[in-house]
């Protein structure tokens, strides 16, 4: 099991934070372009899922899986988007995303009066806490790939 990378988007699609751990394949475009592509795709999937669902969708889009990786998606009621890519075997990633939101984002970004909301996150404490949370999670297993 492993964690590849993490994106946090604001509700307007601004990339607030990006970090990667075990990422083997680079996209070959700049981080900004990649973030735009990613957000665009998520936006489309979200509306697609909500329209195509035969039942009343409660939570909407949660994750998708390819042969190589899974993309897990958490949208908060306030519109923040947390996106975490892991390998396909990972369990309880949603819980991890919830933790990330509750224990790290709220604590060290929302409660830090010098962090402007809807702008890329600068706080060093936030960055180290994200890293700490990911590395201590059972999903994170630093295999030599």
């Amino acid at each position: 099991m492993t964690i590849h990378n993490l994106y946090i988007f604001s509700k307007n699609g601004v990339l607030l934070y990006y970090n990667e751990w075990n990422r083997l394949n680079k996209s070959g475009i700049t981080k900004e372009e990649e973030a735009k592509l990613m957000y665009g795709m998520l936006f489309s999937i979200k509306s697609f899922v909500n329209k195509i669902s035969p039942l009343d969708p409660k939570e909407g889009f949660l994750y998708y899986k390819t042969s190589k990786y899974s993309l897990h998606y958490l949208e908060t009621p306030s519109g923040l988007n947390f996106v975490l890519n892991t390998d396909t075997a990972s369990q309880n990633v949603r819980e991890l995303l919830q933790q990330l939101y509750r224990q790290v984002y709220v604590e060290y970004v929302v409660k830090n009066p010098f962090c402007k909301l809807n702008e890329p996150i600068q706080s060093e404490l936030f960055k180290s806490k994200v890293d700490e949370l990911m590395k201590k999670s059972p999903i994170y297993l630093n295999r030599s790939l």
Binding site: K111, N112, S123, E124, L125, S128
Partner: peptide, 9 residues
């Protein structure tokens, strides 16, 4: 305490 803490290098 939301700005920085002792453990962070």
């Amino acid at each position: 305490k939301h700005l920085a803490n002792h453990n962070s290098n």
